[in-house]
């Protein structure tokens, strides 16, 4: 498409924002940085909205930009201090009883795997996920499979412990 009309752009961003928050959170692990990444991604996407080939690919295109922004923030953060600790969330979890365990488990598997699994569960097609993650469809499938196996194993170990 030549360019995306403002109304369409706004609608697309609104429709993807919840998933976008999840994608950013799985990388950045705190809401402040998610907001920064989202704001940055929207500005960048708006400026370059003419480069989207078709509307159907907008979501994946935007999430790819967002993911890149999240990694930019992560790189800057790590220039000064490296940390593997999981920061406390600033907002409540959907199910506090189990989500802390699950979150800890999630953060122990590679980001590519957890975001692939997340996007799949959010209803994204394999092609879209491949587009977001810069990988072939086959790789997406294997990552999702590995993510599930790894999570089950971690959670089972925790349960047994």
């Amino acid at each position: 498409m030549a360019t995306i009309h403002d109304d369409v752009f706004v609608s697309e961003i609104r429709s993807v924002k919840r998933t976008a928050f999840g994608v950013a959170f799985l990388i950045l692990k705190n809401t402040y940085d998610c907001e920064d990444a989202m704001s940055a991604a929207i500005v960048k996407a708006y400026e370059h909205r003419g480069t989207v080939k078709q509307r159907a690919s907008f979501r994946a295109w935007f999430l790819r930009i967002l993911r890149n922004e999240a990694y930019t923030i992560l790189r800057e953060r790590r220039k000064v201090f490296e940390t593997d600790e999981i920061p406390e969330a600033l907002t409540p979890f959907p199910d506090p009883a189990q989500s802390l365990d699950l979150r800890a488990a999630l953060m122990r598997i590679p980001e590519e795997q957890r975001n692939a699994l997340y996007l799949q569960q959010e209803g994204y097609s394999m092609e879209e996920i491949a587009d977001v993650l810069h990988v072939p469809v086959g790789t997406v499938k294997s990552r999702i499979s590995r993510a599930k196996q790894a999570l089950r194993k971690i959670l089972e170990e925790d349960d047994n412990a």
């Binding site: 928050f21 799985l26 809401t31 600033l90 979890f93 599930k148």
Partner: peptide
Amino acid sequence: IRVSDAIPKMP
């Protein structure tokens, strides 16, 4: 396992 269960509610 729902990944979204481990993500805080969008603030």
